[in-house]
Simulated scan of single mutants.
Amino acid sequence: MTDAVSYYLEDQEYHGKSERTREAYERVLRRFEAFLDDEGRGPSGQALTPEEAGRRECMAWVHSLRGKHAPSTVASYASYVHRFYAYMTQVGEFDANPMALVVEEMDESIDKDPTRREISVPEMRTFVASISHPLERAVVVTLLKTGVRVGELCNLDLRDLALSDPELASEFDLGGRVQLDGRPESLYVAAEPARGHTYNGEERSASNKRKRATVIPVDDELAGVLKSWLAIRPDARSSAEPLFISTSGDWGVRLSTQAVRNVVERHARDHGWYLDGGGAAENVTPHYFRHFFTTHLRDRTGDRGIVKYLRGDVASDIIDTYTHNWGGQVRSVYESNVYRLL
């Protein structure tokens, strides 16, 4: 087989794996492939293809990762290669999986619930203050104040945001959803948007992962940064009128999840919060902001139910309880306890 990695990635696309997942696999598999192709690095002293590699070559590659990456990252990379071999063996393209025993004998393991970097509210306040671009600041503050996932943020449209501002009302069609009637200063996060499906007239490149739609209060700080962003927001190319759109190469196009990750990574690097080879325990990413939101709001409110409601990941009975009392308990508890960032 001339390019086993491309074959595998194409099959994963047919199986419905997201672009982000495929890109992550490709980065690791191409790195593994380059290691095998370097005849001076492997134990055989020869350049090999993945199909030709054996257990010892796989062991040597894993060993080459140690010291450069966190143990959980080493385990994750090894699991990617293991899944690649397992699949290629199962479909009959390869004869065996040389990574099977290597993974079984590794000391490293994937930490599914890592102890993350502890960042205080004052430290996060300093981080936010370092971000001057209105779009980038609005993206970061929205993630921090709402706990939404990066895909959910990118799927927001103008109709999902209700703000009481006469100037904005004359220029933008904000808060057009019936779910926002009587709920000023709030954000509607839907459950329906899915990658590859058309939603509000536009095919989406990311999925929302909420079990149920959620209405999240917008406090004065978030309202302020969103107004600053809307003041310079270019015209959108999509009739769906995305809330966040690109102001760079893809001018006017809905902001992508990768663009958000790039923004957060760049600022986190500048702040010393992102290192190459670092895992979830070290690096600040968009998902870290969801962790920050959950931890700090839960500690401040002592009310796990409201935090779960705001995250949109709870059972329907709890969702319904807070949905029906949204204007009272949810908003008052949120506004009384949400941290100040500006």
Score class of each variant (00 low, 15 high):
residue 264 V to F: 07
residue 11 D to E: 15
residue 45 G to T: 10
residue 185 E to N: 14
residue 232 I to H: 02
residue 238 S to D: 13
residue 170 S to F: 04
residue 141 V to Q: 00
residue 312 G to W: 02
residue 183 R to L: 11
residue 136 E to W: 04
residue 38 D to I: 09
residue 216 I to D: 09
residue 290 R to I: 06
residue 22 R to Q: 10
residue 164 S to A: 14
residue 150 V to I: 09
residue 212 R to N: 13
residue 221 E to H: 02
residue 28 V to E: 11
residue 3 D to V: 05
residue 301 T to G: 05
residue 224 G to M: 06
residue 237 R to S: 00
residue 172 F to G: 05
residue 199 Y to V: 12
residue 80 Y to E: 06
residue 130 S to H: 05
residue 70 A to Q: 03
residue 6 S to Y: 03
residue 23 E to P: 04
residue 324 H to G: 13
residue 251 W to A: 04
residue 314 V to W: 01
residue 335 E to F: 13
residue 26 E to H: 04
residue 207 S to D: 02
residue 196 G to W: 05
residue 29 L to D: 04
residue 255 L to E: 00
residue 271 H to L: 03
residue 2 T to I: 12
residue 324 H to R: 15
residue 309 Y to S: 05
residue 92 G to C: 08
residue 11 D to C: 06
residue 195 R to F: 04
residue 281 A to C: 11
residue 139 V to I: 15
residue 191 A to I: 03
residue 39 E to N: 11
residue 255 L to I: 12
residue 200 N to E: 13
residue 47 A to L: 08
residue 150 V to C: 10
residue 31 R to G: 14
residue 296 H to V: 03
residue 46 Q to K: 14
residue 235 D to A: 11
residue 46 Q to G: 00
residue 43 P to N: 09
residue 23 E to R: 14
residue 231 A to D: 12
residue 83 R to K: 10
residue 151 G to I: 06
residue 303 D to N: 15
residue 291 H to R: 03
residue 333 V to N: 03
residue 245 I to R: 02
residue 97 N to Y: 08
residue 157 D to L: 06
residue 248 S to F: 02
residue 227 K to S: 03
residue 151 G to H: 09
residue 134 P to R: 09
residue 95 D to P: 07
residue 185 E to W: 09
residue 256 S to V: 04
residue 340 R to I: 00
residue 6 S to C: 07
residue 226 L to S: 10
residue 55 R to L: 04
residue 160 D to I: 10
residue 126 T to W: 06
residue 24 A to H: 07
residue 230 L to I: 04
residue 281 A to N: 13
residue 97 N to L: 12
residue 164 S to F: 04
residue 118 E to L: 11
residue 38 D to N: 15
residue 191 A to L: 08
residue 39 E to G: 14
residue 253 V to M: 10
residue 31 R to D: 15
residue 292 F to W: 10
residue 4 A to T: 12
residue 114 P to N: 09
residue 206 A to K: 08
residue 308 K to C: 05
residue 277 G to N: 01
residue 15 H to F: 14
residue 112 K to E: 14
residue 90 Q to F: 09
residue 342 L to K: 07
residue 234 P to T: 07
residue 89 T to Q: 15
residue 245 I to T: 03
residue 132 S to T: 14
residue 148 V to R: 01
residue 107 D to N: 11
residue 173 D to S: 13
residue 7 Y to T: 15
